[in-house]
């Protein structure tokens, strides 16, 4: 019986150690944020929208409602051609596409747009120039939005530039 007690002691001791190591005590950490920010282009004033049309040689106002449960990070817009019909559209609605063609001088715009710090919601409204001498056709309008924690939401719109 002596050995048995010894073994038992070892075992119980070991288990206590394991319990101590595993830190079963109450959770001190505050809950982490796991919510993605949102890009809303549904409102009537939002522009462009899926299958929307831009005009060469004109300015347009890029408008969208950005929101997050805690704090917005930054937003970036990327307009690139889709003459080859590769796709970055995230919308369910499909748009009429022009036939596949070779790019000559496609429009390319990559631009960060600052969001003031500390905001949960932001009405994005920024002017973008579309040069007059670019190839018309199918384009992608990608919006990448992060929140402060680093969650990113991507919205890819199919648009046309005429």
């Amino acid at each position: 019986m002596r050995i048995n007690v010894k073994k038992l002691n070892l075992l119980v001791g070991g288990l206590f150690l394991a319990a101590a190591l595993s830190n079963c005590s109450k959770d001190k950490a505050e809950p982490i944020d796991t919510t993605y920010p949102e890009i809303n282009t549904d409102s009537p004033t939002a522009f462009p929208k899926q299958c929307g049309v831009l005009k060469r040689g004109e300015k347009f106002s890029f408008k969208a409602l950005l929101s997050d449960n805690k704090e917005l990070g930054s937003v970036s817009v990327d307009i690139h051609h889709n003459f080859d019909h590769h796709t970055h559209s995230t919308e369910l609605q499909e748009c009429d596409m022009a036939p596949v063609k070779q790019a000559v001088k496609p429009f390319l715009l990559i631009k960060n747009i600052a969001i003031p710090a500390g905001l949960k919601s932001y009405e994005l409204n920024t002017e973008i120039d579309v040069p007059a001498d670019i190839d018309p056709g199918d384009y992608h309008f990608m919006i990448r939005l992060t929140d402060k924690e680093g969650w990113q939401t991507i919205k890819g719109l199919s648009i046309k530039i005429n």
Partner: peptide
Amino acid sequence: LNPTSRHDDYYGAGNQ
């Protein structure tokens, strides 16, 4: 590899 809230439109071509 920490995903930050920033986008880089030069080296990063507009990506996070």
